[in-house]
Design a binder for these strands. Structure first.
Length: 607
DNA sequence: GTAGGGTTAG
């Protein structure tokens, strides 16, 4: 394949007066290569190039000069600098792999992976042989574009060249596979390494953490320690994010001690990851005290705290943090605002949220992303302004993603608006009909409105389309062991364990205190009231909370993590458990925290 | 020129 020139090549500055652009009056012609190192803009580079041609101080076959110019262009790539680099490269009579690597790096940095890959194919067919610098940038490009097929081809080629065991190539191969969602392929690469170094371990641990497989990440971390491989701060970042995923406060605290003992707390990133971990493991107090001890706080550190308060439903404190951040002249970024918008959304502060959105755009010149739009839809929808939310999506200048509609669908469910939910579901199914959660929400709404034929019909549609429902799962850490419970465990008699009997007893006590099971979300029309009650009783979060109450000393806070939104009945039950059994219950749901104490929840029943 | 903190989806 011939490499075609891109159409947007900046014109050479032939018309300009050719003098040494940086030092106009020098008598001795300076070496253009030295000029490049002082160059500050693309324009200057083009002048230097023209000067070099005109003054004959370089031979156009001289690779080192061209390569230096290409390097300058790809350092912080822009559309025009990349076009220029490409032009320089294409004009080389005998392009070499060094300049090629530089171009490829530029494309992958400017997130233009497709061009990068096409260029690579052309070069290979031109007979050039890639070296171990070639692979990392191309693999990065595949990772960014989720180009699994291209990534695999590169992997094969690197094997043919005997480079797949290279210290630079391995970690990028692992990273490419995990970013393309093939973690097992990544693991196969990792397992082929005879003696993996820290970087390869880190790549694999990060991959597991990113793909929501924290247990495997942690087991590799233990393996590293067993081999007395030197753990670095990057290892800790991924290990901490694994703790956050699991909600494992015990392990997180251990990592905190480990980090302190081994001198990792001097890294701002480690502190930020620790704050995030404490907040996501339910201990906002630990997050705050660590944050206050930090001497240097950057934008991510402030954002972590703003997000932490938002997730715990403390909107006022989120907003206060923002004020403090501003008074210390720290610049907010897009994530800071995501935090603020979520904070407002969880408290129903529609006007405040709108104000932050407009400040973000007008005052801080941040271009809203799809996630900001999502937060706005949530803000409006959750507050019951469903029509506003619908109009907001409909009038966006970008085409809405299924996720945006999904957020609105969830609000329809909270506010029991079946008509709008049907309309919104249609929009979703046009784009993606494989998401089990959408059917569940709609089906629950039909059930709540006693439309049993619709429930049945939807169930059939769901089955035909092979959409899968994610089972509810809750976990709790007791004595450093994480226990997992699934919804429905115990409904059949053969899985009815001691825990289920204990839960039955607890429910009896709760009923004395006024608990009335809310079975309105149970979708089976043909169930008796008793069967419905049992279906609700063995929800995963109730099992986990019961396990916590039974297996920890009286008065201990019970911390539970759930993979989906908490159901209304479990929310009611948890409030009563906090009174009847005198326990604080901290429940992390898929989108926020609920703190139950003295019969009340921190969300104020708005969630 | 390899791994990388704060968001990730109701």
């Amino acid at each position: 394949m011939a490499i075609s020139s891109p159409s947007l090549i900046p014109s050479f500055p032939h018309r300009e007066t050719i003098t040494n652009p940086l030092k106009p009056d020098t008598l001795n012609p300076p070496n253009p290569i030295l000029l490049i190192s002082k160059c500050t803009s693309l324009r200057e580079l083009m002048q230097i190039h023209a000067y070099a041609i005109k003054s004959h101080v370089y031979n156009h076959k001289d690779h080192s000069f061209i390569t230096k110019m290409i390097n300058f262009c790809t350092e912080s790539p822009t559309t025009s600098s990349m076009s220029y680099a490409r032009h320089l490269f294409d004009a080389m009579p005998e392009p070499d792999i060094v300049s090629f690597n530089s171009i490829a790096r530029g494309y992958s940095r400017s997130l233009n992976p497709i061009v990068s890959f096409a260029l690579f194919v052309g070069v290979l067919e031109g007979g050039m042989s890639p070296d171990h610098y070639t692979f990392p940038s191309l693999l990065k490009a595949c990772a960014a574009a989720k180009g699994l097929e291209e990534g695999r081809q590169l992997h094969c080629l690197s094997m043919k060249l005997g480079l797949d065991g290279d210290v630079f190539v391995c970690p990028t191969l692992i990273n490419m596979y995990t970013e393309c969602e093939d973690v097992d392929a990544a693991r196969r690469v990792f397992d082929r390494i005879i003696e993996p170094c820290v970087v390869s371990y880190n790549a694999m641990i990060t991959g597991y953490a990113r793909r929501n497989r924290p247990n495997e990440a942690l087991s590799l971390f233990r393996e590293m320690q067993g081999k007395s491989l030197k753990v670095n701060e990057i290892t800790l970042l991924s290990v901490l994010s694994s703790c956050s995923l699991l909600g494992s406060l015990g392990l997180g605290k251990w990592i905190h001690e480990y980090a302190t003992k081994h001198g990792f707390c001097k890294y701002v990133k480690v502190n930020t990851a620790l704050i995030d971990m404490f907040a996501k493991c339910g201990s906002l107090d630990d997050a705050v005290s660590l944050f206050e001890k930090m001497r240097h706080k950057d934008t991510p550190a402030w954002s972590a705290m703003i997000v932490a308060y938002a997730n715990h439903g403390e909107a006022e404190k989120s907003m206060l943090m923002f004020e403090r951040m501003r008074s210390e002249s720290v610049q907010p970024d897009e994530i800071t605002f995501l935090g603020l918008l979520n904070a407002c959304s969880h408290r129903g502060l529609v006007e405040e949220g709108r104000k932050y959105f407009s400040r973000m755009v007008n005052e801080f010149k941040i271009v809203p992303s799809i996630k900001h739009y999502g937060s706005m839809v949530d803000l409006l929808g959750r507050a019951g302004r469903l029509d506003d939310a619908y109009r907001f999506i409909d009038t966006l200048h970008i085409s809405p993603t299924p996720m945006l509609w999904r957020i609105l669908l969830s609000s329809c469910s909270s506010h029991n608006d079946l008509k709008l939910a049907e309309k919104v579901s249609e929009r979703i199914f046009e784009m993606d009909d494989s998401h089990g959660g959408d059917y569940v929400i709609l089906s629950n709404l039909y059930a709540r409105n006693k439309k049993w034929e619709d429930v049945d019909f939807l169930r059939k549609v769901m089955k035909d389309r092979r959409a899968v429902k994610i089972p509810g799962c809750s976990s709790i850490e007791v004595k450093n062991v994480v226990h997992e419970f699934f919804s429905g465990d115990g409904v059949k008699s053969n899985t009815h364990t001691k825990l289920h009997i204990a839960l039955d007893e607890m429910v009896k006590e709760l009923k004395v205190a006024g608990y009335v099971p809310d079975t309105s979300m149970v979708v089976h029309a043909d169930m008796s009231d008793h069967e419905k009650e049992i279906a609700v009783r063995y929800h995963s979060e109730k099992l986990a909370i019961a396990f916590g109450v039974l297996n920890t000393p009286p008065g201990t806070t019970v911390r539970v993590v759930k993979n989906l939104r908490v159901c209304r009945d479990c929310h009611n039950a948890a409030k009563l458990i906090s009174v009847v059994f005198g326990r604080r219950v901290v429940l992390r749901d898929v989108q926020r925290f609920h703190h139950f104490e003295d019969g009340k929840c921190s969300c104020g029943d708005f969630w």
